[in-house]
Design a binder for these strands. Structure first.
Lengths: 196, 196
DNA sequence: TCCCTTTATGGCATCGAGTGCCAAAATGCA
DNA sequence: TGCATTTTGGCACTCGATGCCATAAAGGGA
């Protein structure tokens, strides 16, 4: 995993630090009113290097998604093909993050970031999100006739979860991210009481 | 409603026709490889006029969404505050369109368009989509404590529906749009059998 | 008829995101 | 020292998008 010998010129830049700078600018002035030139200057990097580190402006917001993907990979490896259903996917993969948002400070930060995501919806097509999707699919039960195939379930589940989270970021004062997500997904199934 | 007297210079352009031309080009060469200049030239309009008719390139794909919004408005006006739940929303607002996609030819066209949408996900933030959202909310039951508030339900429902449809457009050979959407949303609620 | 208002169109300049190409810098290795 | 490797930065360019303004084409009023 580690590069034993590091040849070539060593990096002078810190992607995480640059993303932090950008997030700060976005929070202060709004996503659209901060140009890549602004960020490059604020982070003391050339415009070209900035674009090499973050191929799209939106990647600056998504920074940290790689960590999510790594967590999901580890968790999926532990679980193996566990035959999960939607509820299990939420429990195993989403709730660890949502629980961390019970902390008010973490929640405020997350809501700020999610509001940015809502403003730049191109983010929902992010390649890393598709990777995460593919990993989660491996933990689902195999497809059964008449049931939705696992990739469809996961795709829909992720979209629904993000939609709920973005709504929560904008209008969810007084409720937790976990509550909002759970309530939203539960509501989708409610035509009327399915057990009646 | 109708402009009785139409003052000013009459339009020489037909937005629908231009959108059709653009759709044709997209289908032949791909969304990204068709520039706005290409479309302007193919439709014999100036670049500036093209941008006035379609403020964003993606609007060329979304052309027709206004019709959907108008349908939703009419249907919502008929229904009034009907106290709908998620299943009812699907039944009243989505199924009329999904049923039309049972026709193979219509389905092929819709899948082509949805694939374009998936490639340009900025579309999910389209203002008209938010209008539709707001109209549908008025037909839901008022918020109850412990339940997800109606705007959250509708937001999540629309996101889930579109996610399912886009998956269907790409991978849903052999199933109908209605089947895919229903199965996907049903699966979201399935942790295990809720009635057991 | 002449002007005024209204609406549609087109041209021009400019901004900002994103990309390709290439040269320079900074390291390890032979 | 010379070479391969990697990072960085500069430059030019494409393309989507926007603002400004001039012009064209209609109708209405004096």
């Amino acid at each position: 995993m580690q590069t034993v010998t590091k040849r070539g010129r060593p990096p002078e830049t810190d992607a995480r630090q640059i993303a932090r700078v950008a997030l700060g600018l976005f929070a202060r002035h709004g996503f659209d009113r901060v140009t890549m030139d602004d960020i490059a200057e604020a982070a003391s990097v050339s415009r070209r290097t900035l674009f090499r580190l973050f191929p799209a402006k939106s990647d600056l917001v998504w920074d940290g998604l790689d960590d999510v993907r790594d967590f999901v990979r580890r968790r999926a490896a532990e679980l193996g093909p566990a035959g999960l259903r939607a509820g299990g996917v939420l429990r195993e993969f989403a709730e660890p993050f949502l629980r961390a948002l019970e902390d008010p400070e973490a929640a405020a930060l997350a809501r700020q970031r999610l509001r940015l995501l809502a403003a730049a919806p191109a983010l929902l097509a992010h390649p890393t999100l598709r990777e995460i999707e593919a990993v989660i699919v491996t933990t689902l039960a195999p497809s059964e006739p008449g049931q939705a195939p696992p990739p469809l379930v996961v795709r829909t589940l992720i979209a629904g979860t993000f939609a709920a989270l973005m709504w929560w970021a904008e209008h969810g004062d007084g409720m937790s991210a976990l509550e909002a997500t759970r309530a939203a997904l539960r509501a989708l199934a409610d035509d009327r009481d399915p057990c009646a």
